[in-house]
Design a protein around this nucleic acid. Sequence first.
DNA 1: TTCATGCTGCCAATTTCCGGCAGCATCATG
DNA 2: CATGATGCTGCCGGAAATTGGCAGCATGAA
Lengths: 250, 250
Amino acid sequence: MSRSERLFDLLQVLRRHRRPVSGRALAGEIGVSLRTLYRDIASLQAQGATIEGEPGVGYVLRPGFLLPPLMFTPEEIEALVLGSRWVAGRADGRLAEAALGALARIGAVLPPDLREEMEGSSLFIAPGAPIPADAIDPALLRKAIRTERKLRLSYSDASGASSERVVWPFALAFFDQVRLMIGWCELRNDFRSFRTDRIASADMLEARYPTRRAELVQRWKQWKHAQPREAPNVPATLMPPEAEPADSAA
Amino acid sequence: MSRSERLFDLLQVLRRHRRPVSGRALAGEIGVSLRTLYRDIASLQAQGATIEGEPGVGYVLRPGFLLPPLMFTPEEIEALVLGSRWVAGRADGRLAEAALGALARIGAVLPPDLREEMEGSSLFIAPGAPIPADAIDPALLRKAIRTERKLRLSYSDASGASSERVVWPFALAFFDQVRLMIGWCELRNDFRSFRTDRIASADMLEARYPTRRAELVQRWKQWKHAQPREAPNVPATLMPPEAEPADSAA
DNA sequence: TTCATGCTGCCAATTTCCGGCAGCATCATG
DNA sequence: CATGATGCTGCCGGAAATTGGCAGCATGAA
């Protein structure tokens, strides 16, 4: 049996035991030396398996590595498929792939009737006007947001003036035609929004920003609520992206 | 990347594609030679995966493999959340609820770190222009589509003329501002699209329509492809909804 | 037919794997 | 505290697997 097959096996064995099992027992069950078993466990862990080992006790596989069976109502399936189709059609390539990948995973753990529901779903996203392509990789922005890292941006505002600045990115807003990255701007010492298609370059810095993302979001919402509006009778949430320019106030 | 890791990857890639994929394409996607890919396929098959390969066609993974897929990646979680937020914000109430319900179910099986990812996700759907409210319950349309039942419609077209007809609804298309129900119209004996906000009333009939939904969709795609376009230099997929009116051709 | 594709055998260079040993850390228990 | 069970790591040398390339055959569709 090749090593890769053995790893699949080990996973199944671990899944079967819910009580801790000693490495020696596992090694015996799989037919391999103890030394090799330790290496195998390390391999699985490297792939994200949360296998916990305690001295004197043994190993347990914590859930969360493999996707358990899932159950949904037909309407929930439709909602998931529709949402994923929207992402697949309207977001950048990486996210689009991720949406399809997530659907595929869900489909694999669905009972057959629901899987059929998923495959035959008749809710479609109509292609819209083409979205301006980004000069930079949007996945980088998401990664910076996820890991709360600072970004050094080269940005061209609506008037064409370009600038360089460091921002603390904490959100991405998807409009029909445009995407805005929202962050705290060190240059302006204030919140700013940046159209992703106007970001000429973005470099993720080593430094993490000092505030938690959730708190930035919360503060930003308050800030936004308090902002004077050029057209106050339009609800703030409905303002088109240009109404909140990256830097026209500068 | 180790071989075993690659096998997991290959499985997920296979799950993501529903159409047959050539070995060459798979090899390219995974970054390995064709020869090695064949060996990998054989390995997975030996472990119980039902991967079917036909000469001249490609590979398809039949569901039911004993090993469930690995857990979602953070990016997949982001995609699911973003898609669900789109549905929650842009679809009717029932679907919006379903989207949130689906997310909750997914959240229940996530390990803590991913659940945090889900709850703190910073990708937002910006509210757009208000969507015209439907006079009828959109959930009824979806139910009719799901169960392949005929609908009796009262419909007002763009000019305000109203009509009554029986249709075989098979799809719902979501545009930014408008939703179209697509069906076979018994009155016109042809495919027609109906803006859901112009449907004055809809009654689901007892009768199921005689053709399978999937086949209707397929025929409609061919029909649509063959339709003459008023503005032929605009790609068909980019035409705004009004370009394919419910009945202006009648 | 021709073409795209699946699939297999063979081979040499490279890489990985494997088992064994020795040693350390950690925890529970006597 | 001592002991035992267990997890975990480094090192080594021989063994085994992996890899890509090539050549060739089979099959089904256009």
